[in-house]
Design a protein around this nucleic acid. Structure first.
Lengths: 134, 134
DNA sequence: GGGCAAGTTTACGTAAAGGGAAGATTTATG
DNA sequence: CATAAATCTTCCCTTTACGTAAACTTGCCC
């Protein structure tokens, strides 16, 4: 009765589910982004829901340009400051603010580029128009 | 009198002005992003305003995640379709729309991540608050 | 016009993020 | 149980976007 129902996943299935390869998952573990994974008695990796969420979060961060090393230092700070609850907040807030700033920056740049492209697009469209009516 | 005042720049000065290295500029030429650069009689590269603008544009595209190979294919399409003006528009518009789509996508993802971070931030701040008033 | 900074080519080096194969072992399945 | 499929570790390979050194030539300044 104490089977502690946790729904473990093997690496291959997980990889398929996330649209990445097993190599990628092992690589994240290799560089310390994941901590040592629980293994079966035979040695195959088993992932629980928490670890799945962690990988998903990594992928999300990656998608917006934060590289793995940056994630590492971020994770480090979280972990060291999670020890005593008193000190966690200021430092973590600092980091979060920093990243919010970065994200805002990128959003602004992307918007600007979007405008550039749209303008260029309509300039070309105008040219075509003129050509047709001539 | 026919000095055709074009204000040429040497590579080092240009690099400094753009905040990149000369290697980067030569590299962009090397992989075909810049076309052969005009040289002095002695062989040193001279850049005119157009080329400066081109590099600036490249840097801008780079900043938002378009890699150099993607820029190459983009440039290719522009060049081949610039031959006959009739065919340029549809294809170019198609590409531009594609990239506008990509940019929108990224902006959306960044915004979502920004929300995630902000939420997390305020949850932590709340925790701190509670701790203080207890 | 002598000297030194700046430029040139060639070529090897590097960091990031995995890819891919080999050889052994484990797990799943008929 | 046998066999196939999936995992394991180890190791070398690959691409991208330059960095860096060497050996040499040009350009600019006094």
């Amino acid at each position: 009765m104490s089977k502690t129902q946790v729904s473990l996943t093997q690496i291959g299935k997980l990889a398929k589910q996330l649209g990445i390869t097993t190599r990628t998952i092992r690589y994240y573990e290799e560089i310390g982004l994941m901590g040592p994974t629980n293994r079966s008695s035979g040695g195959t990796r088993n992932y629980n829901q928490n670890e799945v969420l962690r990988i998903k979060f990594i992928l999300k961060l990656k998608e917006l340009g934060i590289n793995l090393k940056e994630m590492l230092t971020l994770a480090d700070t979280f972990d060291t400051h999670n020890q005593n609850f008193d000190t966690i907040t200021p430092r973590v807030l600092e980091i979060l603010d920093l990243h919010i700033g970065k994200v805002d920056d990128k959003i602004a740049k992307l918007s600007s580029l979007r405008d550039d492209i749209t303008n260029y697009r309509s300039r070309i469209a105008d040219l075509l128009q003129k050509q047709e009516t001539e």
